[in-house]
């Protein structure tokens, strides 16, 4: 059985002319990148377009990847800047913590369901929905820490912040997540 090739090996293969090998990296990281894009861009179609753009940009700049950090850290940095640029260009509505529309959306979301439907929702689904109600920065720091396999130092590099700032932000993001869960999904929280 063939061992899984490392990111660096695949990058060397792509740089030496085997462009098709890049598909391995796309397959490996597509769900991470797509999830990050979804944290910023609230719509699957737009998020997929942004995620595609991220991989194209990474491919174009692949010769600049020096291997000083993990490929995933480098890729997520491109993802973050691409998402922010996309938001600026499109001037999409971002879901800020203090934006009352967020709560209106969430309230309407729950209001349309009956008690049985809410009970049927899984705990995972509830947490996921609560993450979607967070600000992009909060949602991203949680995603990178829990799902992106990134240390606080690596997240700091991706987000262009100090590690201590990221640590505090992660802490506060989780507090806000807990508040969202209690505020909007109280029935489900009690079932946990």
């Amino acid at each position: 059985m063939q061992a899984e090739r490392s990111d660096i090996e695949i990058i060397e293969q792509v740089l030496s002319g085997d462009h098709a090998a890049y598909a391995v990296l796309v397959n490996r990281y597509q769900s991470y990148v797509f999830t990050i894009a979804l944290r910023y861009v609230k719509g699957r179609e737009d998020a997929e377009e942004v995620a595609q753009d991220i991989f194209v940009k990474a491919y174009r700049a692949l010769a600049d990847f020096k291997g000083g950090s993990k490929f995933s850290t480098w890729l997520y940095t491109i993802a973050t800047t691409t998402c922010i640029t996309f938001l600026r260009k499109k001037k999409l509505e971002t879901y800020s913590l203090d934006n009352e529309k967020v709560f209106a959306v969430a309230d309407n979301f729950d209001g349309g369901m009956n008690a049985n439907q809410i009970e049927q929702k899984s705990k995972v689904n509830m947490v996921n929905r609560a993450i979607q109600l967070l600000s992009p920065d909060d949602a991203q720091v949680i995603t990178l820490f829990y799902k992106g396999e990134q240390s606080l130092e690596e997240i700091a590099q991706i987000m262009g912040k100090e590690p201590n700032t990221v640590k505090v932000q992660l802490h506060r993001a989780r507090i806000r997540l807990k508040e969202k869960m209690q505020r909007h999904f109280a029935a489900e929280v009690n079932d946990l």
Partner: peptide, 17 residues
């Protein structure tokens, strides 16, 4: 809360991605 976040699955793009 920690375990809840850990169990959240990554979003999947379309099959043609």
């Amino acid at each position: 809360v920690h375990r809840g976040i850990e169990e959240v699955e990554l979003e999947q793009p379309s099959m043609r991605f």
